[in-house]
Simulated scan of single mutants.
Amino acid sequence: MEQEDHELLLPLVDDENICLPLPINVVSKYWNVDLPMAEAMEISKKYAGFNGSILIEGIESAERHGLTCKIFHSSLSELKEVIDSGIPPIVILPGIPEITQHASVITGYDDNEKTILHYIQKGNKKGEQQEGAIPQDIFDKEWLEEGRLLIVIAPSDILSSLKLENDSDNKSNRLCFISERQNILNNYSEAIKSLQQALEFSPNNSTALHLMGTILNEQNSSECVKFYEKSLEINRRYYLTYNGLGNFYLKTKQFEKANDYYTKAIKIDPKRSAKIYKNRAFLKEKQNKNSEAKEDLKNYLKYFPKASDRGIIEQAIREL
């Protein structure tokens, strides 16, 4: 019996900009909508010095040019349903070391091989689409680290055929993305207002709770703890929340608590962040646990070999 095909053919795209991230550009072109790069370049001028992607700018560009977007906390079965409806979904996944997170287009899945297929286009001169197949269980664990966020962009008539009915979740998640933009622009009071609105729509939105904790943490407010803790009640694999709590307790010199949360984050994903090892090494040294501090500094360099402070860290390793 022939296997049913669960794979979408996506266009080859090289162009991207911080305000027109590659996944948004790929999905828009899939729907035969060309988003103007000149427009994205003009908008990006207000983000001078920022290195990441601003997804909400790409989403709003797609909407200005006739597409509709919904953002949900989802599941593997729903992800497959979206693909089988002919819509390429975008998911938020953990980044490689020193990149907090990244958006990825899912091109399909293989139930026989138990894999999820990713679109990986890196300016390939031959114009060949590259695809990455990730074992389904690994994908789901990594996706859960970001709350299983799913971005669906499509023409409104196609989108309305999907049974994605949780409008409160959609509105709440959109406000999270808006808040991230406001935070990048240093509009902290506006960012907090957006997150307060997000939590009115969906009080148990782990993403909104985490982001609120993060902004309050950046302002050195102990109020961050209750938001982080509630986020973890909803999603026990929220890596960034454990890291955030570790950072707060490190700043406030509560070393045992900091160590506990950093260690929990590392257990979830040992390779996700190099900096977490450097932070834990600092507190281990304060606790006179030099051999453990040394091991953490070695891991910091292992996962971030091009660290600008490599020489200083190597010296510290020799001295411990």
Rank of each mutant, 00 (worst) to 15 (best):
P21D: 04
V152G: 02
P203Y: 07
F227D: 02
K284M: 12
R280Q: 09
D309Y: 05
Y30W: 07
S189C: 09
E42D: 14
N259C: 11
G147P: 00
D14V: 13
D137Q: 13
P89Q: 05
Q287A: 15
P21L: 02
I178Y: 08
A198N: 05
E146S: 15
V91A: 02
I134P: 02
E218N: 14
N124M: 08
L12A: 08
S74F: 06
T115N: 10
L35T: 00
L150A: 03
E319N: 15
Q196E: 12
T207I: 12
D84R: 07
F201G: 06
L320T: 08
Y249D: 00
K306V: 08
I120E: 14
C19W: 06
N170I: 05
L240Y: 09
I92S: 09
L12E: 10
I116W: 02
L162N: 00
M37V: 08
K253I: 09
I96V: 12
S179D: 06
C19L: 05
G132I: 11
Y261P: 01
L144F: 12
T68R: 13
N299A: 10
D137E: 15
Q196T: 11
N166K: 10
V27F: 06
I59W: 04
I184F: 02
H65G: 03
K257L: 15
Y262Q: 07
S161G: 10
L35N: 00
K278E: 05
L10A: 06
G213S: 04
R272S: 04
A274R: 03
A40T: 03
Q219N: 13
I184W: 03
E200G: 09
K286G: 10
L9D: 15
E295K: 12
S189K: 13
K286S: 14
L22N: 05
E218M: 13
T115L: 12
E7M: 15
C224W: 00
T263K: 02
R64T: 03
Y303C: 04
S161Q: 14
V27D: 08
Y119T: 06
E131R: 07
I99S: 15
S194K: 03
V82N: 01
I266S: 04
R174E: 01
S273P: 06
T241G: 07
Y47M: 06
N25G: 04
L297Y: 02
M41A: 12
D15R: 14
L245R: 01
Y242D: 07
K80I: 10
S75K: 09
V27C: 07
R148N: 13
N51D: 15
L150F: 05
G311L: 12
G108W: 02
Q182N: 13
S53L: 11
S156M: 14
I71N: 03
I106H: 00
L211A: 10
A293M: 04
K141S: 08
I83P: 00
Q197S: 14
L79F: 04
